[in-house]
């Protein structure tokens, strides 16, 4: 079900992309220009900052726009969270910023990790919290004008999904033993004849989970931006200023929706990661 949905949306995206690539010249590619990664920080019409290029063992590891905003998100996150943790040293009663972040921290711990992982959930809470807040901050940074959304880049979301995948597999193997873990992949009560098929399906299922995680986050974060740009570009496509109020109203609506999506996607990514970890650790459920 999930896969078909993803496939459909991917097909749609592919068609659109092909059209964009085939039918229009460079001039009309400004939507992609805003959504894609770049090697400079774009503060048009004021100025641009050219970012340095690096390479390591033949791999291009240039600092790109998305890297910068990823770092910015991480820096913000570190500063804020250390501030929060320090405030607990003064008093156990939360106040101000601490109160605000405590809601999320407790939510991740009690509503995400606890019910989905069950016993022994404590050791996964730091990972889930980091993933949640990193995605949340990247998502929200993407809503700031002149910024970029690191989580709308497939490389970033894939890396996050792979790290969730690794945490899932390693914790599953550590809990059940490597052999026990793979044996436990096939659910109990499956007819013997079906076991080989199920084993293959379940094994592939291991990899589709992080794939879905990566694509979901990437597609959600990209789609909103593309829609906003498309709505704004209506003004220029139709070459009339009278469409501007409609465009802007709709773009504002999508922007507000993006705020919801930013929060929701951070939650969904964390929730599903936690669910997968729970399924790997407690295979009998």
């Amino acid at each position: 079900m999930l896969d078909t949905l993803t496939a459909n949306s991917a097909k749609l995206a592919a068609d659109t992309l092909k059209q964009v690539a085939a039918g229009q010249g460079e001039k009309d590619n400004w939507i992609m220009h805003h959504v894609l990664d770049a090697d400079k920080l774009d503060f048009k019409p004021f100025f641009e900052i050219q970012l340095p290029h690096f390479s390591l063992f033949g791999i291009d590891i240039s600092i790109t726009k998305h890297v910068v905003f990823m770092w910015l998100a991480s820096l913000l996150l570190i500063i804020l969270m250390i501030k929060v943790s320090k405030s607990y040293k003064k008093s156990l009663i939360p106040k101000g910023v601490t109160n605000f972040f405590e809601v999320f921290i407790i939510f991740v711990r009690d509503e995400i990790a606890k019910p989905t992982i069950g016993t022994g959930y404590q050791q996964f809470v730091p990972y889930l919290l980091t993933a949640f807040f990193f995605i949340l901050f990247c998502n929200f940074l993407g809503l700031v004008p002149f910024s970029a959304t690191a989580t709308s880049n497939i490389s970033v979301t894939a890396t996050l999904a792979i790290s969730s995948f690794l945490v899932t597999q390693i914790s599953g193997m550590r809990k059940n033993g490597i052999f026990g873990y793979f044996k436990g992949l096939v659910p109990h009560g499956v007819p013997i004849a079906l076991v080989p098929v199920m084993a293959v399906v379940e094994f592939i299922g291991l990899f589709t989970k992080p794939f879905a995680l990566a694509i979901r986050l990437f597609a959600n974060m990209t789609a909103g931006h593309i829609i906003i740009f498309a709505l704004i570009s209506l003004i220029f496509v139709m070459k009339t200023v009278y469409v501007a109020p409609v465009s802007i109203a709709l773009a504002l609506f999508i922007y507000l929706l993006e705020i919801l999506v930013a929060l929701l996607q951070a939650y969904i990514f964390t929730m599903l990661s936690s669910l997968f970890i729970g399924m790997a650790v407690h295979q009998d459920h």
Binding site: L17, L56, D60, T64, S74, I154, S155, V156
Partner: peptide
Amino acid sequence: LLSPNPGLIFWTVITFAIL
């Protein structure tokens, strides 16, 4: 949009791990 960038993956891994 969909081609992974090794450099970005590299930085994401490092950033996320340090974070």
